[in-house]
């Protein structure tokens, strides 16, 4: 049986956050809450990326200061790849929110509600 160490606690935070978000996205009946849950799930994953790319100690941002030796820089800066993934996912998340918001507003226009229980023209 493996025991989680202190350095792994952020993972557990991510796991719980992701589970709550997936639950909410699947079972909440309010469309807006569903959307927020999905967006928060993206954030949970972003958090996972960031904590995996973080360097303990005197870490610096991944921008090489003028005159620094690249090998020194590589040994103290944080992971740029994780940041890259997060930056990309944030932009994509914005597009998701724009799309879903537009759809939710239109649903509200048509049905006068955003509760999935009350929107049942289609049988599924």
């Amino acid at each position: 049986m493996m025991i989680a160490t202190a350095g792994q606690l952020p993972y557990i935070l991510v796991a719980i956050m992701a589970s709550i978000c997936i639950y909410a996205a699947l079972f909440k009946s309010n469309l807006f809450k569903k959307m927020l849950a999905i967006f928060l799930l993206t954030d949970a994953v972003n958090l996972l990326f960031i904590i995996q790319g973080y360097r303990l100690g005197n870490s610096i941002p991944p921008i090489i200061p003028p005159g620094m030796d690249p090998s020194d820089f590589a040994s103290i800066a944080v992971d740029p790849l994780a940041h890259y993934f997060v930056v990309t996912a944030v932009v994509i998340g914005l597009a998701e929110v724009a799309t879903l918001t537009a759809l939710i507003i239109y649903t509200y226009k048509h049905y006068g509600t955003i509760e999935t229980k009350k929107i049942k023209e289609l049988r599924g």
Partner: peptide
């Protein structure tokens, strides 16, 4: 009406 409903349904589940 129904096409918007289908769209939001598809949207939520696909993005999830």
């Amino acid at each position: 009406k129904a096409s918007v409903e289908a769209g939001i349904k598809y949207g939520i589940y696909d993005i999830l």
